[in-house]
């Protein structure tokens, strides 16, 4: 980096710049409802330290979060609340379904358990395991970053600009 100090300029595409900014600071909303929440805690704490990847600030308020980490079982009683939390998050938003329960209901094929959170909200990355290891969650976060890289955040805006002219 030393070579680049001092004044000057960098050439990039605006889209890439936006993506770069989004990618390097995915603020997670740790929504740990059950056992997987404990593993998520390990991933956030010392040892695995998710902050290395820019997930520095666990944001418990949905309004300031980018990535919803849904770790744990969602029961039918909880379903409307999960939906509401997702709706409260500002765009752009991504969702990680952590654990077998969040992915598919897991071992709990019962009257009170939602069989996978994708019945109510869209999911970007599924992390299987019961519970997944913290490394699994970190990998999912990296996958989200890859996904962000492939997005075209300005495509809609630019074409509307062009058409407007």
């Amino acid at each position: 980096m030393e070579a680049y100090t001092g004044s000057g300029w960098l050439l990039t595409r605006l889209e890439q710049l936006v993506n770069w900014g989004r990618k390097r600071s995915p603020w997670p909303l740790p929504y740990g409802t059950a056992c997987c929440g404990i593993e998520m805690m390990c991933a956030l704490a010392s040892g695995y330290d998710m902050a290395r990847f820019g997930a520095e600030r666990p944001s418990f308020s949905p309004r300031q979060a980018d990535v919803l980490i849904e770790a744990g079982t969602i029961t039918k009683k909880m379903t409307p609340i999960l939906r509401r939390i997702y709706d409260q998050m500002a765009e752009p938003k991504w969702v990680i379904a952590m654990g077998a329960c969040a992915c598919s209901g897991g071992v709990f094929r019962t009257y009170s358990t939602l069989q996978g959170i994708d019945h109510v909200i869209p999911v970007d990355v599924y992390v299987p395991g019961c519970p997944p290891r913290p490394e699994g969650l970190l990998f999912a976060l990296l996958k989200i970053m890859d996904k962000i890289d492939m997005e075209h955040p300005l495509r809609g805006e630019i074409s509307s600009l062009v058409e407007g002219k």
């Binding site: 059950a34 744990g72 079982t73 029961t75 009683k77 909880m78 609340i81 009257y111 009170s112 358990t113």
Partner: peptide, 8 residues
């Protein structure tokens, strides 16, 4: 309570 009632 009951938000994690999984029917165990």
């Amino acid at each position: 309570i009951g938000y994690l009632h999984r029917g165990v």
